[in-house]
Structure formats: structure tokens, C-alpha cells
Computed example of a mutant assay.
Amino acid sequence: MTGVVVEDVTKSFGATPVLRGVTLTAPPGTLTAVLGRSGCGKTTLLRIVAGFDHPDAGTVALHGRTVAGPGRTLPPERRGIGYLTQEGSLFPHLTVAANVLFGLPRRERRQGGARVAALLETVDLAPELADRHPHELSGGQQQRVALARALAPEPAVILLDEPFSSLDAGLRADTQRAVAKALAAAGATALLVTHDRAEALALADQVAVMRDGVIAQVDAPGAIYRDPVDPGVAALVGDAVLLDGRREGAGRVACALGVLPLRSDVPDAGAVRVLVRPEQLVVGRDGPGVPARVRTREFRGPDLTVELALGGGVGDGVDGVDGAVVVAARLPGDADVVPGDDVTVSVRGAVTAYRV
């Protein structure tokens, strides 16, 4: 079983290219998040895998069976997929049980009580909800019912098109956990398209970053966060401090935050772009590091973000203010710093650098 394999898929709408040679493999039984900004082509990719759109070139295979390619296009209903949209698209006049069983043959629907109960349990819904109608459920419950319906035919592949984007923060987190648990229990291969980096990193076994119709990088969430392939991917998967710098001997780089160890060396490089994550910045009163002044403070509950104007250094920052290099640090929520404080800033751990 090879999961979902997309090879060199292109797609244009009129004169506008949308996919420019997309290649992606989603291993069987895993969840792959396709992460990208609006308009990058991720929903078009999902629709091509589903069979709703057809590629101009390239192939799509689902668990070893080619479903789209030169001279072969299998219709959506024969691809063995489940599809979950943003809205869930439940039938408002049907009960939860009837919605869940809708995609099954009639003979299976007539004997579906136990099946419904099992599917509701899989998506963490109480069995007594089976007789309710969609308008009697919360948004998160509706999405779980929609997932149960998608899982009912036991598809090998589940496609999820930003299914949590319409939910508020509390419902979103609970629903995400329930969906991830249900997908793991079903053993289905899942593709999730999203613009929410926290969602992608939290739920996926691997993250594929899409940009301008191509896949820029595919890796495990931790790896893609620690070692993004370029500054653009770095900024897409997390908050990023990007500074100009220069290589300072093997395995070290100099920038406005000092001379720092590199996670991976950049051989034969002069000028570089240095990536530091905000949580790597250590702010103190009289500790080691470069001098800085606190410009702003944004409290976020468990943590806070402070904007710091550094007191000099190598190169210019992305956000230069009055000639200073300005960086953002993420600190514990009870950190005792306020705008106007003079502090020192050092870096915890190794950083990443890119040739300019």
C-alpha cells in the first residue's frame, strides 16, 4: 500500500497556472497537512485528488491504483474517498443517524443502528445524539457527524478541506483532537489542507508547505519547524526573527544578536540570512548578551511577546526602527518587563542561516 501519490501534477484555469508540477506522497495510515496561504493551490490539489477537477498533466494514485493521469480518469464515487468540507454539509432535514448512514447502500442503512453507535463513539459523540437534527448540535458536533458520515463507507482515503476554520477557538481545539483520534482509529490515509500553521503542526504526521503552486518542503512537523528550507517557509510555519549576518568561521554566524552556533553549517558563504525563533531569545536585566530596550509588550496569557530594539550589531533587521534592529521575543507570561526597560538579549541554542 503506497498511500496517496501525486506526481508532477499541473493545473491551469484559463491562462492562470494554479499547480506547477506538484509532487507529494502521503504514506498509508498517516495525516498529511498541506499548509499554505490563500490562493497557493492547496484546495485545487485536494479537488484533483478527489476527482472533482482533472489535472492538465501528471498522475494521482490512491493506494497503488492510478485514478488520474494520461488517458485515465476515475470518477469521484469510484475512488474510495471520504471528503470533509469547511461547512460539513449535513442534510438539515435528516437526523444524525440518517446523515451518517446516507452514503451506504440501502440494505446497510436498514441495519445501521450499531454502525451509527460505533461511528459516533469513534468521533467522541454521545449515542443519544443519533436522533437529533443538525440545528440541535454545536458547530463542532456537526463537523464530527460529518466526519462520521465520511468514515461510514470505510474509505481508504479521507480528504479534509479546512474543516475547522468556521469554529471558534474552544470548539476548534476539541474538534481537532476528536478528528485526529478518529482518523487514527480508522487507519485511513488523510490529506488536510489548511492555512493554520498551529493546526498543521499539531495534527499532522507530515507537513507539506505549498507556495505559488508548488510544494516548497515536506517533512515531519518538528523538522520543518526547526529546519525550514528557506526564510519564506520559516515565516509560514512559525513566528520568525530574520536578521542579516555573515558566516564567522565553521559552524558559526555573526548577526545583530552576536556570534551564534549554526544548526547546520553554510559552507563558503559570506552574507547570510539568520533565522532565530522568538522563543530562543533570553531576556535578562544584567545577564550576557547584547543590550536592548523594550519597545512594546503584548500579553497573551501563558506567554507574552515583547518587541526589542537592539543596541547595535551587524547588518539591518527586517523591522529597522530609527536605525535600530528590532526583534520580537516570546517570554513567560509572568516576565517582569515593560516598555522602556533596558535589558540584555541572548540566544538559546543553535540557529539556521541561509545564503543570500
Rank of each mutant, 00 (worst) to 15 (best):
T122E: 03
V123I: 07
D124S: 14
L125F: 06
A126R: 15
A126V: 08
A126L: 12
P127K: 02
P127N: 04
P127I: 07
E128V: 10
L129R: 13
A130H: 13
H135A: 08
E136N: 04
L137K: 01
Q141K: 02
Q142D: 04
Q143G: 07
R144D: 01
R144C: 05
V145H: 01
A146S: 06
A148W: 10
A148L: 11
A148H: 03
R149N: 04
A150F: 06
A150P: 02
E154Y: 04
E154H: 08
P155M: 00
V157C: 05
I158L: 14
I158A: 01
D161V: 15
E162Q: 12
E162F: 15
P163K: 09
S165F: 04
S166E: 05
L167I: 03
L171R: 11
R172L: 09
A173M: 14
A173T: 15
D174K: 10
T175C: 02
T175N: 08
Q176L: 10
K181F: 13
K181D: 15
A182W: 00
L183C: 12
L183R: 06
L183W: 09
A184P: 02
A184E: 07
G187R: 02
G187V: 05
A188T: 11
T189I: 02
A190P: 03
V193R: 08
T194G: 13
H195F: 09
A198S: 14
A202L: 02
L203H: 00
L203F: 00
D205T: 01
D205Y: 03
A208K: 08
V209I: 08
M210N: 07
M210A: 10
I215H: 05
Q217H: 05
V218I: 14
D219F: 07
A220F: 09
G222K: 15
A223R: 15
I224T: 11
Y225M: 13
R226F: 09
P228N: 12
V229E: 09
P231T: 06
G232W: 01
V233G: 00
A234T: 03
A234F: 04
A234W: 02
V237T: 05
V241K: 12
V241R: 11
D244H: 15
D244V: 13
G245W: 03
R246D: 12
R247A: 15
E248F: 13
G249N: 09
A250E: 13
G251Q: 07
G251T: 10
A254M: 06
A254E: 15
L257H: 06
